[in-house]
Design a protein around this nucleic acid. Structure first.
Lengths: 111, 111
DNA sequence: TCTTATACATAATGTTCTTATGTATCTTTG
DNA sequence: CAAAGATACATAAGAACATTATGTATAAGA
């Protein structure tokens, strides 16, 4: 079952930042594949969503980039800046608390 | 701490439907107050978000309304239709699974 | 050689929220 | 008793963020 896209809304930045935290440096396409794999095909990050998000994170100073050439093909790596390191902790904590609140409100039993 | 609004995105319909399931019938303002109370002030549903959502749920046939007068003031009660009863189960299950997937991806430890 | 995968990016569009505004009644407080 | 705040509905303009479509280009596999 693929999660309906509206659920991803609001969590995309957090997912991206946490992936960068866990893996040091990653390029865009790699992030989409990693998230697809981790979610067992249930979360697909579209390119139209990912790239603007990465550019926004860079503009906010939360990530920095380095460009590499693999043969002739460009590859743009992203990694967290120090302020990105702080931000990811905040974002993940907030989401964790939000999910607990939602479980309470929706009366969802632990598995 | 108030949850940043982007987290609510995509979960509002589910929250509203589940409230109606738990409480039988409710009016709009009552839903905002109940959710505020349950979330310990951390989730505020704005009227600009709530009323269009309720109207959309009605247009989709998931809820039906009955209007009451309290003195001279109107009060519009919403309750689930049979198809709304099915939908709320779907939506809550999907959200529960999504949250489990997110916990896994974000490496969030159980409390 | 053709298709699929890799890899970036942007633009038009759609959805859904926030913020602002509007109307009106009821209750509390100085 | 007048003003302020709470109750209760609703809509419109604007912002935010995603989808879908499109574009460019290289690499790998059938």
């Amino acid at each position: 079952m693929i999660y309906s896209s509206e659920l991803i809304k609001g969590t995309l930045k957090t997912i991206v930042l946490q992936q960068l935290k866990q893996n040091g440096k990653m390029y865009g396409y790699e992030i989409t594949q990693k998230v697809k794999e981790l979610s067992k095909e249930r979360i697909s990050i579209t390119e139209g969503a990912l790239y603007p998000t990465l550019h926004a994170l860079e503009a906010e100073g939360l990530v920095q980039t380095e460009t590499e050439f693999i043969g002739k093909r460009i590859r743009k790596y992203y990694r967290l800046t120090p302020s990105g390191e702080n931000k990811v902790l905040e974002k993940v904590n907030e989401l964790a608390e939000f999910m607990n609140t939602m479980k309470f409100i929706l009366d969802i039993k632990p598995v």
